[in-house]
Amino acid sequence: MTDAIARETIHIDDIDPEFVDALIAAGADRIRACLQCGTCSSVCPSGRRTAFRTRELIRKALLGLKGEVLSSPDLWLCTTCFTCLERCPREIKTTDAIILMRNMAVREGFMLPQHRKTSMKLIATGHAVPINDANMTKREELGLDRVPPTVHSHPDALEQVQEIMRRTGFTALIEGQGEED
């Protein structure tokens, strides 16, 4: 019976002691105060239907399991609803910490292919959700301008947005993620 329950061993090589410090430096200042109460997991809409556990993610981050945390698809199941952040008895900015970890994950090359696509759209058009023919027609039928007065109507504004993304390194970051097949 007991054999069926695998013992989980944490290897010293998997622990990066600097990971928590990096998180704290990036803004997750109270994260060490976590008491593992599980309030965050209990209010999580994603945790209600998946194996994602906010408490577990915070625990692993505190243990310094950088590779496991950053490569985990669970990191991308948070809807950023902020419910856990509102309820945490230790006032840890859980959602913000998740966003910070996601930033680190992308820098390490862990990005979901769909998210890369969304980023490519932003780089090409200035919109994460650009206009299409069907919606241009819909706009006309509604008596609105066929193309909205956004970057879609202003090539010079789009050029400015693209230059900002080049300067912040976003374009290189996304293009460096490589094509998924």
């Binding site: 966003i99 910070l100 992308v106 932003l122 994460a128 900002i164 390194g169 996304i174």
Partner: peptide
């Protein structure tokens, strides 16, 4: 999405 990918951008 975008804030999750790169906050400075």
């Amino acid at each position: 999405v975008i804030r999750s990918f790169d906050e400075p951008t």
